[in-house]
Simulated scan of single mutants.
Amino acid sequence: MEKKDALSAFAALSQETRLDVLRLLIRAGGEGMSAGDIAAALDVRQNTLSTNLAILTRAGLLHSSREGRSIRYFADMGGLTALLAFLMEDCCGGAPDVCRPVLAALPACCAPAAALSEGNS
Results as ranks from 00 to 15, higher is better:
Ser50Gly: 13
Arg18His: 07
Ala114Thr: 11
Asp97Pro: 00
Leu80Gln: 05
Lys3Pro: 09
Leu80Ser: 02
Cys99Trp: 02
Ala108His: 09
Ile38Gly: 04
Ser34Gly: 13
Phe10Asn: 02
Lys4Trp: 06
Gly119Phe: 02
Leu25Gly: 07
Ala28Tyr: 08
Gly93Phe: 14
Met88Trp: 01
Val44Asp: 15
Leu61Lys: 01
Ala114Phe: 10
Glu89Ser: 12
Gly32Lys: 00
Leu61Met: 08
Leu83Met: 11
Ser14Thr: 00
Asp90Lys: 06
Glu89Arg: 11
Gly36Arg: 08
Phe10Ala: 07
Lys3Arg: 14
Pro107Ser: 12
Thr17Ile: 04
Gly78Trp: 00
Ala39Cys: 14
Gly78His: 03
Ser121Lys: 12
Ala54Glu: 06
Ala40Met: 14
Ile38Lys: 04
Ile71Lys: 07
Thr57Asn: 10
Leu7Trp: 08
Cys92His: 09
Gln15Thr: 11
Arg27Trp: 01
Arg100Phe: 09
Ala75Trp: 03
Glu2Val: 00
Val44Ala: 14
Ser8Phe: 00
Gly119Val: 04
Gly93His: 11
Arg66Ala: 13
Leu62Gly: 07
Asp5Gly: 02
Pro112His: 09
Gly29Phe: 02
Ser50Asp: 06
Val21Asn: 08
Leu7Lys: 08
Glu31Ser: 12
Asp97Gln: 12
Asn52Gln: 13
His63Val: 02
Phe10Thr: 01
Ser64Val: 01
Arg58Thr: 09
Leu56Val: 00
Leu13Met: 11
Gln15Ala: 11
Leu22Pro: 03
Cys109Ile: 07
Arg23Thr: 14
Tyr73Val: 05
Arg45Ala: 15
Asp5Leu: 14
